[in-house]
Simulated assay, not measured.
Amino acid sequence: MKTIIVYASMTGTTELMAQTIMEELTKAGDRVVLRDVFDAYAEELETFESVLIGSYTWGDGDLSDEILAFHEELSEIDLTGKLGAVFGPGDSTYEHFARAVDRLEETLENQGCNLVTKGLKVDSFYEDEEEIQMKCRLFAEKLISERVVTI
């Protein structure tokens, strides 16, 4: 499956998540393109079968500055028939934990994307790198198994 992973990362946690998910999908046979959001354009998502977006949450539930322009572009393209999922770190000490994941899922669905599984939220305040990578591997395995059912 031809998959793109677009991510926005400030501290490196979202990038770690994206790379871990990419490694697992590649092992399963996907042809994966990994893009930092600064190097991505929403319209290129239309050329992929599977779309994954990762972003951290800024403050108490906002999208990060890095992903705002991409999010606006995303709201203008048709993703009907695409499979998708969202992931991102958050800090559970805030009222709206990892809300960027929810907002990006909503946008993908509004654009016609079929979400394969519930978004992955990790707690970068309490979880260490090993725990985060383990959750990402399990997330990738779920993506692989669920999209077979979805297709």
Rank of each mutant, 00 (worst) to 15 (best):
residue 70 F to C: 00
residue 44 E to F: 08
residue 111 Q to D: 09
residue 100 A to N: 07
residue 104 L to D: 02
residue 102 D to A: 11
residue 111 Q to W: 05
residue 60 D to C: 05
residue 13 T to G: 00
residue 59 G to H: 02
residue 58 W to K: 07
residue 33 V to R: 14
residue 58 W to T: 03
residue 114 N to W: 14
residue 56 Y to Q: 09
residue 41 Y to P: 00
residue 51 V to G: 10
residue 12 G to E: 03
residue 26 T to M: 07
residue 62 D to W: 03
residue 113 C to K: 10
residue 106 E to M: 09
residue 52 L to G: 14
residue 30 D to S: 14
residue 63 L to Q: 06
residue 26 T to Q: 12
residue 84 G to T: 05
residue 76 E to K: 11
residue 81 G to D: 03
residue 39 D to N: 07
residue 58 W to H: 09
residue 62 D to K: 06
residue 8 A to T: 08
residue 23 E to C: 06
residue 47 T to C: 05
residue 10 M to T: 15
residue 113 C to L: 08
residue 81 G to I: 07
residue 118 K to T: 10
residue 86 V to G: 00
residue 11 T to K: 10
residue 6 V to R: 06
residue 22 M to T: 15
residue 70 F to M: 00
residue 33 V to M: 12
residue 113 C to A: 13
residue 36 D to V: 02
residue 89 P to M: 04
residue 41 Y to S: 12
residue 87 F to W: 03
residue 22 M to Q: 15
residue 115 L to D: 07
residue 4 I to T: 11
residue 30 D to A: 15
residue 103 R to S: 14
residue 87 F to Y: 08
residue 117 T to Q: 12
residue 35 R to P: 00
residue 99 R to Q: 13
residue 16 L to V: 00
residue 29 G to I: 06
residue 43 E to G: 05
residue 99 R to I: 06
residue 25 L to W: 04
residue 33 V to H: 14
residue 54 G to R: 09
residue 37 V to N: 01
residue 63 L to K: 09
residue 32 V to F: 06
residue 72 E to F: 07
residue 5 I to D: 10
residue 3 T to G: 08
residue 28 A to Q: 11
residue 27 K to F: 14
residue 61 G to I: 01
residue 15 E to D: 04
residue 61 G to T: 02
residue 59 G to M: 03
residue 54 G to W: 12
residue 105 E to C: 11
residue 89 P to N: 05
residue 63 L to E: 08
residue 7 Y to G: 07
residue 40 A to K: 02
residue 51 V to P: 11
residue 3 T to A: 13
residue 60 D to M: 02
residue 55 S to K: 04
residue 21 I to K: 01
residue 97 F to M: 02
residue 79 L to K: 06
residue 67 I to R: 08
residue 8 A to G: 07
residue 14 T to H: 09
residue 20 T to Y: 13
residue 49 E to S: 08
residue 82 K to V: 00
residue 48 F to Q: 02
residue 83 L to C: 12
residue 46 E to Q: 13
residue 33 V to K: 15
residue 35 R to I: 03
residue 114 N to L: 15
residue 120 L to I: 04
residue 104 L to G: 01
residue 56 Y to T: 08
residue 104 L to C: 01
residue 71 H to Y: 11
residue 19 Q to W: 11
residue 90 G to Q: 00
residue 109 E to P: 03
residue 58 W to R: 05
residue 45 L to Q: 04
residue 73 E to F: 03
residue 13 T to R: 03
